[in-house]
Design a protein around this nucleic acid. Structure first.
Lengths: 159, 159
DNA sequence: AAGCTTTTGCAAATGGTTTGCAGTGGGTGG
DNA sequence: CCACCCACTGCAAACCATTTGCAAAAGCTT
């Protein structure tokens, strides 16, 4: 349960060709907008708002609406994961090899910094809930919120 | 961690005067709309969508906008808790004496039935995260989703 | 009952997300 | 290598949850 910062841009672990290959395997077209989107997500390995993602793209690379549609498509094929922090809309992150396994986030409520928490101790809890309740296919959604060390000092007002 | 159904209307444990007294203590006015809202929530002890809550009120009792404003007010004074299931907007539930303590829900993704899970094993986890990350005031948001026993049989399509 | 302040209703603005439609452009078969 | 077809895109507008502005209505206090 040790937190792991996913700050920004420490090299791109996933290659773009690796990603586009997945598109081809699903007989989806490898278009300019899709490449631009994957390229941007590759370099920003944290949950991004649609509009943040769109802002990362070069002017005219891709319409906002296309970002929405791409997220839906990519999520359906499992290349992207939807994360909800409850403010400002849905966020999406690339499902990478080293981030494939189920994990959670620790979000600073002041500056919105995001850390990734490795491993999850709730898989066993899901099984217990299934037994106790009779529900099936039980999953969960869990995020942590708090005030990060930097914000504890600077006392910047919450955005 | 045994699930407890919060199906519907098994008697109203909280009295209306008890609730309005809290309003008075905060020098908030005891208006018709507020009484109607609290009365409705008293009889429906599960997380309600704003529009569901509004639909429960008698015609002309209270405007939709007023429901929104009331939820904001009541949440600020701790009488109501906001719950996010990620579909269709925020939900709210009364904070009752027997439901005051932090708890989570188990939601059927087919019929949207909601069960309440007593006790939470994550308080200790929050402390561990604080130590490991340096964050402060760490809280969390956790909900479980699955298919309830009834829906496993009837195979009704998801709404 | 009068007066002051909060609260409400209505209308309209806002912000995220989806949809309709016509035009563009990948990718495949000839 | 070209042409064709359907998936994909851009743009505009629709949608839905939520918020805001403003004047009228209603609590609470005196």
């Amino acid at each position: 349960m040790k937190p792991r910062s996913t700050g920004c841009c420490h090299g791109s672990h996933v290659e773009l060709p690796t990603l586009t290959a997945k598109l081809r395997k699903e007989s989806l077209k490898i278009t300019g907008p899709r490449q631009a989107i994957l390229e941007a997500m590759r370099h920003h390995p944290h949950p991004l708002l649609i509009k943040e993602l769109h802002a990362l793209l070069a002017e005219g690379d891709c319409d906002l609406v296309t970002v929405y549609r791409s997220m839906k498509t990519l999520q359906k094929m499992g290349m992207v994961r939807r994360v909800e922090f409850g403010k400002g809309g849905s966020r999406f992150e690339l499902v990478t090899d080293e981030g494939r396994e189920h994990h959670h986030h620790l979000v600073c409520e002041a500056c919105h910094a995001v850390m990734q928490l490795d491993d999850c101790l709730l898989l066993e809890v899901e099984r217990r809930i299934e037994k106790a309740s009779g529900f099936r296919s039980v999953t969960h959604r869990l995020e942590f919120f708090g005030i990060c060390p930097a914000c504890q000092k600077s006392s910047v007002p919450k955005p």
